[in-house]
């Protein structure tokens, strides 16, 4: 495969589970500083694509390149260390730890066994935690046990945990699921802020929300790309209306 300027270059990616192709010869490019939203009906393969990129699922064939580095052969933690962060669909935070500890533990130093034993919380760490906590609107809840946060705040905290690692590619699986209207607006603002120096891939069902954030939209259907372009173009696309937006 050729080298590209894209942050993320997925080419001919296929994964098959017992003959069922959840992702079928998918080719997708994401630019620097781009916020891409992936939409599509249930079972279209959206989450599977994220699983493939972050190494949770191994591909059957094809290539995933992040800054021209092949990801399909790396293990999960190596992909993260290369600069790819991923938020799961249900908020995945450490409920037993405080908000501060959740963020601190995500700081990308002391990632080995010995490193973590000798890890010291320096000014850099403290400053990062406070900066990110402010970004995700949880600055006043730093000492709170994460289990006590509202659902929306948990979603933000997980985004914050990824921001601590300052990834160049951030992937978010349904970040506003279960949020109130106000929280959705705040999340849209948050995403618009944090996509400044990085690329972001978002999976989302809420069209109002997608309109607020998307630079470009990709519609997946049965593991293949049905349409790609700006939100307006995609919404007018007849195939898209047929299988997804329509009725």
């Amino acid at each position: 495969m050729s080298n590209t300027d894209f942050v993320l270059a997925i080419e001919d990616l296929t994964v098959s589970f017992d003959g069922f192709k959840a992702v079928d010869a998918l080719t997708l490019y994401v630019d620097r500083n781009e916020l891409r939203v992936v939409i599509g009906p249930n079972g279209a393969g959206k989450t599977t694509v994220l699983d493939l990129i972050c190494g949770k699922t191994k591909s059957t064939s094809g290539s995933i390149k992040f800054k021209n580095r092949e990801l399909t052969t790396l293990s999960e933690h190596e992909i993260v260390r290369a600069g790819v962060g991923r938020k799961f669909q249900t908020p995945s935070i450490y409920e037993n730890l405080s908000v501060y500890q959740n963020l601190e533990v995500s700081y990308p130093k002391g990632r080995g066994v010995w490193g973590s034993l000798l890890f010291k919380s320096t000014d850099d760490v403290v400053n990062s935690v406070h900066r990110v906590a402010k970004e995700i609107m949880l600055e006043e809840h730093l000492d709170m046990e994460a289990a006590l946060l509202s659902h929306g705040q948990k979603q933000w905290l997980e985004i914050g945990m990824l921001l601590m690692q300052d990834p160049e590619l951030l992937m978010l699986d349904e970040p506003v699921a279960g949020m109130s209207a106000k929280e959705r607006d705040q999340t849209a603002d948050l995403l618009n802020r944090i996509c400044k120096n990085r690329s972001v891939v978002v999976i989302e069902h809420d069209m109002e929300f997608v309109k607020k954030i998307a630079h470009k939209v990709t519609v997946l259907h049965q593991g293949k790309i049905l349409a790609e372009g700006t939100m307006d173009n995609v919404q007018k696309d007849e195939k898209v209306i047929e299988v997804y937006l329509g009725h």
Binding site: K56, G85, I93, Y94, N96, G110, S116, L118, F119
Partner: peptide, 21 residues
């Protein structure tokens, strides 16, 4: 230490720790 915090984190959400690098 941070190791201990990671142990607790792993007990709770192993995947999240793995996907934190």
């Amino acid at each position: 230490s941070k190791f201990g915090m990671l142990l607790l984190a792993m007990r709770d959400k192993e995947e999240r720790v793995r996907f934190s690098g």
